[in-house]
Write a protein that binds this DNA or RNA. Sequence first.
DNA 1: CTGAAAGCGCTTACAG
DNA 2: CTGAAAGCGCTTACAG
Lengths: 378, 378
Amino acid sequence: VSERDIEARRVTGATVARELGVSPSTVSNAYNRPDQLSAALRGQIFEVADRLGYAGPDPLGRNLRRRSAGALGVLFSERLSDAFADPAATAFLEGLSAAAEAAAYGLLLVPAPADIEEPGDPLASVSVDGLVVYSMPREHPLVAAALRRRLPAVTVDQPRVPGLPFVGIDDVGGARRAAEHLLGLGHRRFAVVALRLAVPARDARADRARQAAAVYAFSRARLRGYAAALGAAGLDWGGVPVEERAHNTVAAGRDAGRRLLDALPRPTAVLCMSDQLGVGVCEAAREAGLSVPGDLSVTGFDDAVSASVAGLTTVRQPLREKGEIAGRLLLRRLAGQPASSRRRLPTELVVRSTSGPPPTSRKAGGGAQVSGSQGLRG
Amino acid sequence: VSERDIEARRVTGATVARELGVSPSTVSNAYNRPDQLSAALRGQIFEVADRLGYAGPDPLGRNLRRRSAGALGVLFSERLSDAFADPAATAFLEGLSAAAEAAAYGLLLVPAPADIEEPGDPLASVSVDGLVVYSMPREHPLVAAALRRRLPAVTVDQPRVPGLPFVGIDDVGGARRAAEHLLGLGHRRFAVVALRLAVPARDARADRARQAAAVYAFSRARLRGYAAALGAAGLDWGGVPVEERAHNTVAAGRDAGRRLLDALPRPTAVLCMSDQLGVGVCEAAREAGLSVPGDLSVTGFDDAVSASVAGLTTVRQPLREKGEIAGRLLLRRLAGQPASSRRRLPTELVVRSTSGPPPTSRKAGGGAQVSGSQGLRG
DNA sequence: CTGAAAGCGCTTACAG
DNA sequence: CTGAAAGCGCTTACAG
């Protein structure tokens, strides 16, 4: 009975039409095509609507009829709340939302399923016109579900889905330049703080097997870039400790830094896959009584706001632009134009005050060449 | 003709049912109620679906039928891209998304209308189950549209919509404590950098009239807090320059700082309504050859990541928690429980290294009491 | 300038 | 275990 009461009380366009003795089409036209009816009738309709508490056509009905949702979906591998805590993700969203908004599209952030591998389709109730797949491994159940849906989609920082447009950056080159910069300053003892490598992400030392099993394209590529530069300088990549961290936060960097700085012989340079991690490593160094860059050099990645505030040497990537391009690519597809392009944006080394020559070593036997900036081959 | 081709090609649950000679209900049940049909038939259905390219029930149809959208809408007064560039907004979204995600809801970020006051309802195509109204002035057309829709809604940092649940912080008290801290250190010459006050927001000096016309509850309240503290210490609020900035960025703070530090007599303390602004003012000071806090003390607001990185003295507010509470309040209403509460969360002064005693003044005649921390009345 | 008809794709009691 | 029927609320040609 109460169910029926509610039912009876719901006001739709048809209710307004009935009340006024006009057809539902006319009510619809009053809202959508003012030129299709007299101003007088339109006024009456609005008046009755107001009196009855009708707020205009229900988007649910309209969207089904028009077969459009007015929104772009965004898929993250992490929980949404982790994405918002990650400056790289929010800068990307900044650009993406600018593109969406310019075309009057909203952004629907798709919730991560409570259990990975839970039964049921996490996309079952997600009404969107297209999908942005942000930095997810191809095997992720959400990506599989997205592909099954055959929605127009764009992948970002993750190139392995054939047929879909892709936007990414030169991760290998960026990582390589950071390592070369430190090599050029004379460093020989390196450590790395990596972002998530495989699923599930870990907060732990990543051995060779773990590195080889990396499924996130961006972190895999950055490892490759670091390794290439160090290898070219004659260093043994196998001896370089790599700490993996699941979350892109200062706290994670601090923790990883503590662990790396505990080891002997201590590294003189730490390559970090994000600025948050880099800032955290700097904090761990100061905690341990080490000066940066006197005793320890640190590089980040992204060039987020915290990097410039902290004076962090880092690799700049055009995060906002990456989001804008992803959005425009998807919107172009939605407009019916073919857009199966792949864009790889450039990265750039930004030298600030957390990198310098290594301390003149008392015990290590390594070369003490403090100068020279290039060409450390062989 | 091509229209018809496309029409003919679309695969729905009915297509699968026809192909297999079963009813649409059975196909629906295969996806939604596995217990309602034999495993064998279910398998057949999935097989045919796969062959025909049917990805499961279309969310558009399902959402209409179920009268739910599976998403919470978020309304901002700024463009979406500005919201993502604002650390306070993203920290709020972090908490909100955690609450939404825990209940398997997505977050739909509603695009700002291209023209303010454009014709048509910006919410016309926005399918959501409820709305979070974040820091908007009551008169804003989007808020009016939202109220008209009669959707369950929660307002945040903006208390003036009667009947709606509200979550906010103690802006007055937080601002007052920042000012009292600086007064206690002996400062007498203040300046303020404010966030948006009225619509449209401006990048300019805000005179008394502008301050009185402020429509954003949070900035209005913070001004009141600053003014109360300075007034209680016998200072003339009318003589305190207030610079308004539309965007919460370091660049905006730097610009405001430059203008304030150009004036003579120069202020010895700058109260900022955000950490980004505060960091910017610190940069402007260093640019001008002033030391912080030796020549100039600066306070922020929020205690965002940049505040701790920069060592900024600030007023901490529980941004993430605010978002979580807003989300939970809205979800409770969606679950049919009454939730017309108002929550005002506490703020807390965090003293770091950008505040100290004013420089021992050579020319100004003010008192030079460098100590004392409270009770500057009269 | 207005209305009757069809249908967007789905799910839910209900009957068998 | 399966199907026929009704309807969620809307918009779009089309006829008048």
